[in-house]
C-alpha cells in the first residue's frame, strides 16, 4: 500500500486515511471511517508514519504538516 505515487501525490487509500484523521484516531477508528480492512489501515498508517505524513500520539495517529499539505494539494 504505497502511500505516495510516482509523481509525489497521495495514493487513493492514503488520501482516504488522512482524510479520516481530521481528529487523531486509532487504526480501528480509521478502518471504521474509511471502510478499509483493519490490516490495510495498520500497514498504511505505519508506512505513512515512516514517510512523515502522520505521527503517533499515544494510541492515536494524527497528520503532520507534510501530511496536511499533501492532502490539500
Amino acid at each position: 500500500m504505497a502511500c505516495i505515487g510516482s509523481k509525489g501525490e497521495l495514493t487513493e487509500s492514503a488520501r482516504k486515511m488522512l482524510t479520516a484523521l481530521e481528529h487523531p484516531a486509532s487504526p480501528e477508528d480509521v478502518a471504521a471511517r474509511t471502510d478499509l480492512p483493519l490490516f490495510r489501515v495498520r500497514a498504511g498508517l505505519r508506512e505513512m508514519a515512516e514517510a512523515g505524513l502522520v505521527e503517533l500520539q499515544g494510541a492515536s495517529y494524527a497528520p503532520t504538516e507534510l501530511g496536511r499539505s499533501l492532502l490539500a494539494a
Binding site: 500500500m1 504505497a2 480501528e28 480492512p37 483493519l38 490490516f39 490495510r40 495498520r42 500497514a43 498504511g44 505505519r46 508506512e47
Partner: peptide, 13 residues
Amino acid sequence: THGKIRLSDYQGT
C-alpha cells in the same frame, strides 16, 4: 501486492 504487511496487522481478525 498491498505494500509491506506484518502478521500482527491482522490482530483481531
